[in-house]
Design a protein around this nucleic acid. Structure first.
Length: 424
RNA sequence: GGAGAGGUGGCCGAGUGGUUUAAGGCGCACGCUUGGAAAGCGUGUUAGGGUUCAUAGCCCUACGUGGGUUCAAAUCCCAUCCUCUCCUCCA
């Protein structure tokens, strides 16, 4: 959401910003609605003031035992006038609001122009690629008898997976390792949030109203299944005024994520790369405006650190304008090397939304003792996607001599001390 | 799922149709007082919006949320959300 006054003051900035996302100039329509609404509001308020004033006289006349019927008729006439204006005002407000809530955030100046992921800019690479090419996780997992897509499909359809034995445990181990690292080394506070939320929460983080077809929802109760823990965690500050000195607030959570993948038919159909349900450890930071860029870099460091400890080669890219998400001003993706695909694939996406979400959910901060409030800045990032990290471990730690998968050093404490997953 | 109670400012809490411009208290801020403090006294203390050169003034809106009744709603009606108590169920 946007500050309508900022749009009034510098419409060119907004149109220029939106044009980077391929949108036609939006401000003429916005400003027209805004102007109409305000002039209507002004006349409506004048009528309201008049009504209040005249109404009070009725009270006074009645208190003194007089006959107020003439005065009552006069006020009734004002009210008739107001009715129409109220309706028009409501329609205009709704139209303006609908328009604004469907518009994406403006991007940071240093976001490169580009159409799609091919135009993303690599920032750096880390790690040594040991196997350039190899079997993919489907082949490895099925041969070990520990990943089962067929059985999952029978009960749930496509894009679901069953993990068994040491593979199920490794998924859990990754999540524990991520959480322990973030809480112990990165000073994030662990959260266990609701997995079902109402529409207003999704509106706050920007998935609604525009992306409703990407969400799963419950038939009986009008809940949505969270597509990421970003939704419930960020919404923890909705409607609040936070003491500035307590910021930043840094959280992480391990949750399942549910996505309909409505627009992805035919994409990544093989394996567990793109699922309707997957686990992810998510990080969220709430900061003041002057600290959010610094926090963004810090968050990137947190995500990269867990991959370094896992010793999985990755590269970090800055998303171009065409690939940057709806609510973000700037996004870094971290991509891990997958020998099975002979390419890098995303395991983490880290975004600074600045005040975009905060405005939608009315999340503010105030310095103690001062009167002025400001919107907080919100940031979110995967730290990291558990399912995809598991794929990376399987493919990068594969042992061609026996078809097994070595256990990364940092996961051993979580794996009952075993060194390797082998066919049982 | 059944029965009931309730949601008022930062907090507590009064208020069942019109001098509510939301009493009173606590807290907080400032001032007076003091050698300094406490106590006491005084003043102030919500948010969003419109108008405006304006941070001045004036005005509008908001008593969980959304509708409605009325000349007039914190107060009456309907819906909805949330909290609490009891029963039922349950990991």
């Amino acid at each position: 959401m946007f500050d309508i006054r900022a749009i009034r003051n510098e419409p060119e900035t907004f149109d220029k910003g939106w044009s980077r996302r391929g949108l036609e100039p939006q401000t003429p329509a916005i400003l027209k609605l805004d102007e109409d609404r305000r002039s209507l509001q002004t006349s409506l308020q004048e009528l309201q003031a008049k009504r209040n004033e005249e109404s009070k006289k009725i009270g006074l006349i009645k208190r003194d035992g007089g006959d107020a019927s003439a005065q009552m008729d006069a006020v009734a006439a004002i009210k008739t006038q107001m009715g129409e204006l109220e309706e028009q005002e409501r329609d205009l407000s709704k139209a303006l609001n609908d328009l604004l809530s469907a518009l994406p955030n403006l991007m940071a100046d240093d976001v490169p122009d580009g159409a799609d992921e091919a135009d993303n800019v690599e920032i750096h690479k880390w790690g040594e690629i040991k196997s350039l090419k190899g079997p993919d996780h489907v082949e490895i997992g099925e041969a070990l008898g520990l990943i089962d897509f067929e059985t999952a499909a029978k009960m749930s359809g496509a894009r679901f997976t069953i993990l068994k034995g040491a593979m199920a445990r490794m998924e859990r181990a990754l999540a524990q390792f991520f959480l322990d690292t973030h809480t112990a080394e990165h000073d994030l506070t662990e959260v266990s949030p609701p997995l079902l939320v109402r529409d207003n929460a999704l509106y706050g983080t920007g998935q609604l109203p525009k992306f409703s077809e990407d969400q799963f929802s419950t038939r009986e109760t009008d809940h949505y299944l969270i597509p990421t823990a970003e939704v419930p965690i960020t919404n923890m500050v909705a409607g609040k005024i936070i003491d500035t000195e307590t910021l930043p607030h840094r959280y992480c959570a391990h949750t399942p994520c549910f996505r309909s993948e409505a627009g992805s038919a035919g994409k990544d159909t093989k394996g567990m790369l793109r699922q309707h349900q997957f686990y992810k450890v998510e990080m969220v930071s709430i900061t003041t405006a002057d600290k959010s860029e610094e926090e963004h870099e810090r968050m990137l460091g947190c995500a990269e650190n867990v991959l370094k400890k896992l010793e999985i080669p990755f590269r970090t890219v800055k998303l171009c304008s065409g690939d940057t998400g709806f609510g973000a001003t700037k996004t870094y993706d971290i991509e891990v090397w997958l020998p099975g695909q002979e390419t890098y694939r995303e395991v983490s996406s880290i975004s600074n939304c600045k005040d975009f979400q905060a405005r939608r959910m009315n999340a503010r901060t105030r310095v103690k003792g001062e009167k002025e409030t400001n919107f907080v800045h919100t940031l979110n990032g995967s730290g990291v996607a558990v399912g995809r990290a598991l794929i990376a471990v399987i493919e990068n730690y594969y042992d061609p001599t026996d078809g097994g998968v070595f256990v990364p050093e940092v996961l051993k404490p979580y794996m009952g001390g075993i060194d390797k997953i082998v066919k049982g």
